Computed example of a mutant assay.
Amino acid sequence: MGRLTLILGGARSGKSSYAEAQAAMSTGAVLYVATAEAWDDEMRARIAAHRAQRPAHWQTVEAPRQAGAAIAAALTPAITCVVVDCITLLASNIVIALPEGATDDDATAALLPEIDALLAVCAQSSADWFVVSNEVGLGIVPAYPLGRVYRDALGRANQRLAAAAERVLFMVAGLPMTVK
């Protein structure tokens, strides 16, 4: 199994930049897995900015769902580093697609197989993996049911990833703090 590093933190804490900097030090090919979907102009601009800042020689796979299968299809022996950016948006894509009134159990049941698929591909890979996700448990309790369902499902996904990870980092103001 490749070395799995989970990078957690709040919005604009430096998670993605840190993961990309680590990948840039890789001696082989880098596979960048983007999970964002462009639902509006602001998100399209964010995606364009992320694309522009990545090295052109990195291979990019866009996988807003079924990221594990997309990674498995793209992995080659030359790839020595995989960056998954990010679980936060992957979870959002999955939870938002659930029917109205979905429960925490429904969201968790939909999201954890995605996480398990990622971990299964990681287990078969010799690459170093940097998986980015937001820590959403430090803020206020969301005022609406879907927000609470999302927060709880993502928290469970982060726990599953952290348990499997060799390293877990928590980013604060661009600085990595080692958790595990």
Rank of each mutant, 00 (worst) to 15 (best):
R3T: 15
R3A: 12
T5W: 05
L6V: 14
I7F: 06
I7T: 07
L8G: 01
G10L: 01
A11S: 14
A11K: 08
A11C: 12
K15G: 06
K15W: 03
S17G: 13
S17I: 03
E20S: 02
E20Y: 08
A21Q: 14
A21E: 15
A24I: 00
A24H: 08
A24T: 03
A24P: 00
S26Y: 02
S26W: 00
T27I: 02
A29R: 11
A29S: 11
L31M: 10
V33E: 05
A34Q: 06
T35Y: 04
D41L: 03
M43Q: 08
R44K: 14
R46W: 01
R46G: 02
A48Q: 14
A49C: 04
H50R: 14
R51N: 12
A52H: 03
A52V: 07
Q53R: 15
Q53T: 14
A56M: 11
Q59P: 00
T60K: 06
T60M: 09
V61A: 12
E62D: 15
P64N: 13
R65K: 14
R65N: 03
Q66S: 12
A67P: 12
G68T: 08
G68W: 04
A69T: 12
A70N: 09
A72F: 04
T76R: 06
T80V: 06
T80L: 04
V82T: 10
V84A: 01
V84M: 03
T88E: 11
L90F: 01
L90K: 08
L90W: 03
A91M: 06
A91E: 03
S92Y: 08
N93T: 07
N93K: 06
I94S: 01
I94T: 15
V95T: 10
I96L: 14
L98D: 04
P99Q: 13
G101A: 08
A102F: 05
T103L: 06
T103W: 11
D104R: 14
T108Q: 12
A110C: 02
P113S: 04
P113A: 02
P113R: 08
I115G: 00
D116S: 07
D116W: 01
A117M: 07
L118F: 12
V121F: 04
V121H: 06
Q124F: 00
S125E: 01
S126F: 00
A127W: 13
A127M: 06
D128Q: 11
D128G: 04
W129Q: 09
W129L: 09
V131F: 12
V132Y: 07
N134W: 04
E135L: 11
G137W: 03
L138M: 15
G139P: 05
V141M: 11
P145T: 06
L146I: 15
L146D: 06
L146Y: 02
V149E: 11
R151N: 05
D152S: 12
A153K: 04
A153T: 09
L154F: 05
L154I: 00
G155I: 09
G155Q: 07
A157I: 08
A157Y: 00
Q159R: 11
A162I: 12
A163H: 15
A164V: 07
A165V: 08
A165L: 13
E166L: 01
E166F: 09
R167V: 14
V168D: 07
L169S: 05
L169F: 09
F170D: 03
V172N: 02
A173I: 08
L175S: 03
P176Q: 09
M177E: 09
T178N: 02
T178A: 14
V179H: 01
V179R: 05
